[in-house]
Design a protein around this nucleic acid. Sequence first.
DNA 1: TGCTAACCGGAGAGTGTCTCCGTATCGTGG
DNA 2: CCACGATACGGAGACACTCTCCGGTTAGCA
Lengths: 183, 183
Amino acid sequence: MRADAKRNYDRLVEAAREVFREQGYDASLDEVAKRAGVGPGTLYRHFPHRDALLDAIMQSWVQRVDEAVEKTLAFEGPPRDLLLGWFQEYVQLISLHKGGPAKITSAMGDPESPIYHKCQVLRGAHDQVIAALRERNALREDVETLQVIRLVGGVATVADQSELDLAAVRPLLEVVADGLIKA
Amino acid sequence: MRADAKRNYDRLVEAAREVFREQGYDASLDEVAKRAGVGPGTLYRHFPHRDALLDAIMQSWVQRVDEAVEKTLAFEGPPRDLLLGWFQEYVQLISLHKGGPAKITSAMGDPESPIYHKCQVLRGAHDQVIAALRERNALREDVETLQVIRLVGGVATVADQSELDLAAVRPLLEVVADGLIKA
DNA sequence: TGCTAACCGGAGAGTGTCTCCGTATCGTGG
DNA sequence: CCACGATACGGAGACACTCTCCGGTTAGCA
């Protein structure tokens, strides 16, 4: 890759991160190009479609996801609180910009999605947390990872679209957690 | 209202119902106008924005919602099954076309939304079902109607966006119901 | 039948997406 | 150090969608 190409690539990712955070995932891509100081042609050569840009942005997630999992697994309290804590981390992770939760949650179960592979990191994270709870025999037996992801993703999506704050989201997550924890 | 105006109004609503069902709530409004056999100007005079069209479409809901509530309240079995049955009715009601669940769920808590008042019918329906369960002392005390709506709306939204069938949605609703029913 | 308020619908401005291709730049091999 | 080919740049523009404005038309009443 030529030096100028790499420079523009990096600028575009950075600009996209900014614009998406400010205006949501529906923001104009020309705006992204403009802010990166390049023409639209350059943007579309590097990133054939919107999702490719999202994919690049999500690179930096991996580390943060790992940290969140580690923190969760180190938790010593009751299983319900562990699960609840993880849910809150997860909701924050996927709520980086407007439209994110919906995008990610639906990509999670769609191997055709351009960001499917990135989402598998999140799925693996869930697997680890769920496995830890199973070890303590705290979880209902018939639930699958994908179901948990969809439940929490649903809450995050609603929260995103209704612009709910953490205080409003928490009781929703509690209900989900209570429904998952063994009675 | 002049006869020709009413005729066009009705045609537009019917066309919108068709187009939204086929292509989702994001479909082109010019397409709706074309299918109704009128110009875009006529469409936008009758319906200043997309939501106004949705509002008109939702007119026919009221009756169906009432029927669903009645059916639910007549149910004699255990509270969990009553709640689950209602959830399924509700998800079907708001999943008339792609994008519907998200739209409705976020409008539910936003008095500024053009379809807010229509949504209050749905809210009233939830209130009735929840009141019935409270009477049986079957529900957790600290939950509010809006929270229940958001939880089920979240599941419906995810189902809509991931194109899940009823079989995939049911276990998700079960978790929510279990989290709401008194232990 | 004739009048007028109400309605119709197409042209077009504004915005966003995405492509094509002439031009500019990089970086290597001579 | 320079020249040249490969690579990348970016703006013009085709296309799609939303929404408005206004000249022409029509319904319905007197």
